[in-house]
Lab assay of single mutants.
Amino acid sequence: QIFVKTLTGKTITLEVEPSDTIENVKAKIQDKEGIPPDQQRLIFAGKQLEDGRTLSDYNIQKESTLHLVL
């Protein structure tokens, strides 16, 4: 699982696999929060994550925290 922290300070927990794409993660966030993926920007280690890449591409491991910017 990974954590996604929103600007409001809320933390969302997501069940993911390293092979999941960023697009996939955004879809999971939409399921939980109702935020359309095209409004979501995910930041990890100061980098904006691209939809077509996977979590493992960015070396995002379990218990990692991503930041969600709208």
Rank of each mutant, 00 (worst) to 15 (best):
V25S: 00
I43F: 15
A27D: 07
G52M: 09
L66K: 01
T8H: 14
F3L: 06
L42P: 01
S19L: 09
L49D: 00
S56N: 09
R41V: 15
K47Q: 15
S56H: 13
G9F: 04
Q30E: 10
S56E: 14
L7I: 15
S19Y: 14
I29W: 00
D57E: 11
E33T: 14
Y58Q: 04
D51R: 04
T13Y: 08
K28R: 08
L14G: 00
S56R: 10
I35R: 02
Y58G: 01
S56A: 14
Y58C: 04
L42W: 01
T54M: 11
V25T: 03
G34N: 08
G9I: 02
I22P: 02
F44I: 04
K10W: 09
K26F: 03
L49M: 06
K62A: 15
S56W: 07
I2R: 01
S19D: 12
Q30P: 01
D20M: 10
F44K: 03
I12H: 03
K28H: 05
P36C: 09
Q48G: 06
T54Q: 08
G9C: 08
G9H: 05
A45H: 13
P18M: 13
L7S: 14
V16C: 12
I60N: 01
L49H: 00
H67Q: 10
K32L: 13
S56T: 11
L70F: 09
G52R: 09
K10N: 09
D20Q: 05
L55C: 06
E23G: 13
Q30L: 09
R53P: 05
K10D: 08
I29P: 00
K62M: 15
E15F: 12
K28D: 02
T8M: 11
D20R: 02
T54A: 06
R41G: 07
N59G: 15
T8W: 14
L14Y: 02
S19K: 07
Q1R: 13
L42Y: 03
T21S: 08
P36V: 05
E33Q: 06
E50T: 06
Q39V: 11
S64H: 08
I22F: 03
A45I: 06
S56I: 08
Q40W: 06
N24R: 13
G46Q: 04
K32C: 11
A27T: 11
T54Y: 07
Y58I: 03
L49Q: 00
N24C: 13
E50F: 06
I12W: 05
V16Q: 02
P36A: 10
Q30V: 04
D31M: 14
K28L: 10
S56F: 10
T54C: 08
G34V: 02
L55G: 00
L68M: 08
Q40D: 01
E63V: 03
K28Q: 10
I35Y: 14
L68D: 00
T54N: 06
N59R: 07
F44R: 03
V4E: 01
L55N: 00
D51I: 05
K5S: 08
I35C: 06
H67M: 11
I12P: 00
I43H: 12
P37D: 04
I43T: 09
L70C: 14
T21C: 05
Y58F: 04
Y58A: 03
E50V: 08
K32G: 04
T13A: 10
V69I: 13
V16A: 07
L42H: 00
I43D: 05
L66S: 01
K47Y: 09
V69F: 13
I22T: 04
A45P: 02
I43E: 09
L70Q: 10
I22S: 02
D31G: 09
R53Y: 14
Q30H: 13
K10E: 09
D20E: 09
Y58D: 02
I29T: 01
L14Q: 00
L66N: 01
E15Y: 12
Q61G: 12
E33S: 12
T8G: 11
A45C: 14
N59T: 05
E15D: 14
N24D: 13
L70N: 09
I22V: 09
L55W: 03
S64I: 05
Q1V: 15
L7D: 13
E17V: 10
A27P: 00
K5Y: 06
S19F: 12
P18H: 08
P37K: 15
I29D: 00
K47P: 02
K47A: 11
L49N: 00
T11P: 04
I43G: 03
Y58S: 03
L55Q: 00
A45Q: 15
R53S: 07
L42D: 00
T21A: 05
V16K: 01
L49S: 00
N59F: 08
Q39D: 08
H67S: 07
I29E: 00
V69W: 10
L70V: 14
I35Q: 03
E63A: 10
H67V: 12
I12G: 01
K10C: 14
R41H: 12
L49E: 00
F44G: 02
D51M: 05
Y58V: 02
S19V: 06
L7H: 15
D51E: 08
T21E: 03
R53K: 13
D20S: 07
K5V: 15
